[in-house]
Design a protein around this nucleic acid. Sequence first.
DNA 1: CCTGTTAATGCGAATTATTCGCAAATGTCA
DNA 2: TGACATTTGCGAATAATTCGCATTAACAGG
Lengths: 163, 163
Amino acid sequence: MQLIMTCINLRKPPCSLKVGPDKMVNTLNNEPDFKQVLRDAGLRVTPQRASVITILSETDDHPNVEELYEKVRKLDDTISVATVYRTLSVLENVGLVRKLVLNDAPARYEMMPPTNHDHLVDLESGELVEIPGTDIADVMNRVASELGYEIVSHHTVIRARKR
Amino acid sequence: MQLIMTCINLRKPPCSLKVGPDKMVNTLNNEPDFKQVLRDAGLRVTPQRASVITILSETDDHPNVEELYEKVRKLDDTISVATVYRTLSVLENVGLVRKLVLNDAPARYEMMPPTNHDHLVDLESGELVEIPGTDIADVMNRVASELGYEIVSHHTVIRARKR
DNA sequence: CCTGTTAATGCGAATTATTCGCAAATGTCA
DNA sequence: TGACATTTGCGAATAATTCGCATTAACAGG
Ligand SMILES: [Mn+2]
Ligand SMILES: [Mn+2]
Ligand SMILES: [Zn+2]
Ligand SMILES: [Zn+2]
């Protein structure tokens, strides 16, 4: 099943990562920012890593590695798939990128979102819908009442470390 | 990283699926129950499906297919891995089983829990901890205050269909 | 600038969880 | 007890991701 990302329309303006002037600024600020994050982690700033971040920052959907690789190749036609995998893993580790592991599909990726959101998979269309907010009960209520969705199941995985 | 399932101790009695006399009853009631669920879905009741349900009902952790297969083989030494996969898929479709897709590890399975719970992955030990309740904000607060966990990230996937 | 050290890359092969194809077996129902 | 569609077992196939290693390049220090 193919996943298509759309923006939920619980309220206007939409939550699209590309919409809004502040986000444009954020995207531009991204470049010096990620360099510092990498260096602070003792990692090198390579053109491959820059390319992956550029492409992932420019897109408002949730590409998988194959899709990302095709787009990144337009910036750097010598980059390899293995490097895209390694780069995404690195960027995930330093907290710049979020990896979405969904059922029976290759992992998808997004820049670590400035505004928290979770995801809803439309079982019929395969759409991947972004849901603003953090409160599951609230989300369930909104989805049920404001959108016409019937929730089949939900599953939250929290990654944590002992404090 | 190996995942070990433990039971959270936010309050007593613990939420272990095997603890408590009512759960024992639930497990025993499971057998006639699942047959009806399968038949209602137009599916056949096979010894392979019964074996998988028996083993998965008896365990209080979250086995992956490999682990499940080894245990099921003690009930039915001719069952094949492919059948375990197919059976789990069928049982998930009819709502008897929940599949847990975690990062970089084979999927894990549990009987659809009578009491709702989500999961927490301890990033250091790899432990898979069960978290009662449905409210994410509440869970985050509890985890932070009552257990000594620092939340690194959380991700909720809701599966839904248009109503 | 150079230069040395070391991390990162590219390539292709390897890994491995999961699925598939098909012949044989079996559950269900009349 | 058949008929017959479904399910199984087996092995091969698939495909996402990782690995090994030779080569390249980032970058700290001189
Ligand atoms: Mn794709
Ligand atoms: Mn295992
Ligand atoms: Zn998103
Ligand atoms: Zn559980």
